[in-house]
Design a protein around this nucleic acid. Structure first.
Lengths: 132, 132
DNA sequence: CTGGATCCGATTCGATACTG
DNA sequence: CAGTATCGAATCGGATCCAG
């Protein structure tokens, strides 16, 4: 058990944070919010994901209890993935975070533009100094 | 501008998510919540961070408008970092996420234990089948 | 003290080929 | 259809050295 939710004190928190950071986890969770999906459906919906990464990501989510995997003994095989209750709950703070970024989109990009302009200017000054 | 906060439709959202995923950003933000800090203070507090990564992470946060960097023209130089209003606001959904993990810590670890036991059992069965 | 530059090992991930 | 196995390219990050 961890003493607090400080990522520095709770490895699990930082693990889950880096989960969020990988390219596919969040996308897949969002897709699964629409209900159970087959492997190939997810692959089709999450544009650009490779078979390998889809498998690995789903496995990790399954291991953490976020996703339930159901195999139907048909031929060809049919495997369905769906969010567990835990997984659905997990998706809430993620949505909240996405919402925050969306709301503050303009401020972030304004800050970047200003920072980049400033850097550009400094490089320009350096040039002048060196030339002069 | 993005059409929604779906990471698939808004590159900025996925950028910020992968920020969370890197090893240091969240730790540094949490440290800065305690007020302005000097470079070496942060380095001392965030155990294990290299000079390089601290610099890079702070630069990225500064560029996004989360952190303000103030240089005092003393010798030796003194540089202070502090959260901006945007940065402080940014830390809220992060805290919320950390809180969620903390609250659901037990469920996550229970799921992992079960998953690992199951995998272990399957490997065991495979062995028996192969041997038998 | 702050932080830029470089080198290099480790990890990540996509592409490809193969299996039940 | 739903994976597993393997390989190579790219990226990441720590260690080290240097500078204002």
């Amino acid at each position: 058990m961890c003493s607090s939710f400080d990522p520095g004190k709770c490895p699990t928190v930082s693990e889950m944070l880096s989960r969020l950071g990988d390219k596919w986890t969040v996308l897949i969770i969002m897709v699964l919010r629409n209900g159970p999906q087959r492997f190939s459906d997810i692959k089709r919906t999450v544009v650009g994901v490779s078979q390998r990464m889809l498998t690995l990501t789903l496995r990790a989510l399954e291991r953490d209890g976020m996703v339930r995997r159901t195999v139907y003994a048909t031929v060809p095989p049919r495997v369905e993935y769906e969010l567990t209750e835990l997984g659905r709950s997990f998706s809430e703070p993620i949505q909240a975070f996405g919402g925050w970024v969306f709301e503050n989109y303009n401020q972030i990009h304004a800050a970047r533009a200003e920072f980049d302009a400033r850097s550009e200017a400094e490089r320009g000054n350096d040039k002048l100094i060196k030339i002069g």
